[in-house]
Amino acid sequence: MASALNKHNFIGCSIRGTLSFFRESILSEEHASYRAFLQSLDPRAKTATFLLLCLAVLMARNIYSLLFLYAFCLLLVCISKINLGFFLIRTWIFIPLFSLFIAIPALFSFISPGEALCGFKFLGFDLVITRPGLSGALLFVARVITSVSLIILLGLTTRHFALLKVLRIFKVPQVFVMVLGMSYRYIYLFVEIVQDTYQGIRSRVGEAVHYRKGQSIVAWNIATLWQRSFKLNEDVYSAMLSRGYTGEPVLADEFKTSFKDWAWVCLVAVIFGLALYFNHG
């Protein structure tokens, strides 16, 4: 099993990757518990305004508006006591870099014809970077990085269950919100079970196991986990019944808005209005 879970093995890498994702996810809840600006806002106001900011990003046509919105996002990161280096690493990896690769072809004259800025030869082909191509690619990457940053900032500064509860302002049925909340809660339990099983197997089986045997152990564990989840499902339903659940869940509405929330909503509305004016006015 251990060989099946070593660093060169697909299954091992997958288990480790999944566990590390969840551990990171638990860690990210720490940022949401800081006493700082964004953390202190009502999750409903915060979610609605961040969506408005994302809309402003999508509608922005010039790079300066996008740079302003990105700078505003970074300012929010700082006043929310989130380490800027940590945030930049988290936001620049994967999606924006990926979008950068997508944007590269748009730089050249065969995709975006127009005024030539510079040219070079690559594998015998003449490649010319054009002004519309460069500005289009920059706009695309800036849009992606700003949107991704805003969404990650929202996730970092808001407790996950609060984000789920916010779904209710979009009229998502209570039962759906409750099921999502429970799934969120039990994912951690199953992660712990997987982790413990993994350690248990490692301690007993050691390193010298053929990868085929490793695969069968993993498959067996998946089946066991499914059985456990099925049993847990029945037991949790009993626990819910025991406390008065009748099939129509009633959830607590704990959100409270303050003057600060309304001031924040007004500020974002002004920014959205200005973004509209400068880009479409």
Partner: peptide, 30 residues
């Protein structure tokens, strides 16, 4: 249900909400 309350042996069965506060409020709300 409001007269009889059961504390299960396994807390992971009893605590099914995302936070402690929601778990405590679950019964009274229902």
């Amino acid at each position: 249900r409001s007269k009889v309350g059961l504390v299960f042996q396994n807390p992971d069965i009893q605590l099914f909400c995302p936070t402690v506060k929601e778990d405590i409020l679950f019964g009274p709300l229902q």
